[in-house]
């Protein structure tokens, strides 16, 4: 382990502790906003772990998240809460593995289309199953407060950053960067491209499912239309790309401003959120390719060159 690594870890841990102190403010609105930000941080960061290096845009976040909420919804009356999180991780991971094995051997377009419909399809199947068995929704009654949810999410964020950091230093991380650059070359230097992609997709699927399971008590009453909102997938993609997937901390930089913007727009112009999503996509492509991280790198590069010339 190099010196730089140690200091990065120390910084990460310090920021995490700082974030965990938020509930001490006792401000309900702030904590609720904190939950939202922590939730999107985990989702966007884990999304970027897979989609960042490979350029495969996954729109399956809502499906994994929804499955996670349903794990809590279905299990809360029968099992202790703490067992539900690992179960959600396994269920999300298995779903991701199945989707990945079916689609990741093929081109990126197939993958996007498939993941785009996954949440909607899962929602249809869950709705159909519930109609058939005769109950519409599920109550999740726990004594977990917003604070508890927030702390769980912050801890999960720490875990995701740790995973991302470890993957970035591993052969798997290196393999994914090669795959993202040129899949043919990757195959010819001996990389099992399908397996590498599926492995990381499983991580992001499992994490999203756990987030769903953690958030479920906040909803109290779960029904398919709240658990599987396709918007969630798009928001996560925008936040991650807005921040930039070139660095582990990139998505976090996108989550905070976008969450605030989203809150502002959806409270004052609730009908214009779709338009906002669309414009954000276009802005990322045309104005901010590489996100804030890319912008930062370009500025740094330029000033370094200016210094070299001076």
């Amino acid at each position: 382990m190099k010196r730089g690594d140690l200091s990065n870890l120390a910084w990460g841990a310090a920021l995490l502790v700082l974030a965990a102190l938020l509930p001490l403010t006792g401000d309900g609105y702030l904590i609720s906003l904190g939950v939202t930000i922590a939730m999107y941080t985990v989702l966007a960061t884990s999304w970027a772990l897979f989609s960042g290096p490979t350029h495969y845009i996954s729109l399956a976040t809502a499906a994994f998240f929804g499955v996670g909420t349903y794990v809590t919804g279905a299990g809360i009356d029968h099992l202790p809460y703490w067992t539900l999180l690992p179960i959600a991780a396994v269920v999300g991971g298995v779903l991701a593995a199945l989707v990945g094995l079916a689609t990741l051997r093929l081109s990126g377009v197939y993958f996007v289309i498939f993941t785009l419909g996954l949440a909607e399809m899962t929602r249809q199947v869950v709705t159909w199953y519930q109609n058939k068995t005769g109950h519409k929704g599920t109550y999740v009654l726990t004594d977990l407060t917003d604070n508890d949810i927030y702390w769980q999410l912050v801890a999960l964020a720490g875990l995701v950053f740790l995973i991302g950091w470890a993957v970035g230093r591993s052969r798997l991380g290196f393999a994914l960067r090669i795959i993202g650059d040129d899949e043919d070359v990757a195959r010819h230097v001996g990389i099992n491209t399908a397996l590498s992609k599926v492995a990381l997709f499983i991580v992001s699927g499992a994490v999203a499912a756990v987030v769903g399971a953690i958030i479920a008590p906040r909803y109290v009453y779960i029904e398919p239309s709240t658990a599987f909102t396709p918007m969630l997938s798009f928001q996560v993609v925008i936040m991650a790309l807005l921040g930039g997937t070139g660095r582990l901390w990139g998505p976090l930089v996108g989550v905070i401003p976008f969450t605030l913007l989203w809150e502002a727009i959806s409270s004052s112009f609730p009908n214009q959120t779709t338009l906002l999503l669309g414009l954000s996509f276009l802005a990322i492509v045309y104005l901010l390719p590489g996100g804030f991280v890319g912008l930062w790198d370009r500025v740094k590069h330029r000033s370094a060159r200016r210094r070299a010339l001076a």
Binding site: R177, I178, D181, D182, D184, V185, H188, V189
Partner: peptide, 13 residues
């Protein structure tokens, strides 16, 4: 091991 007819390097590295 092989090289390609049109050079294929990894552009981000």
């Amino acid at each position: 091991a092989r090289t390609f007819q049109l050079v294929r390097l990894l552009p981000s590295m």
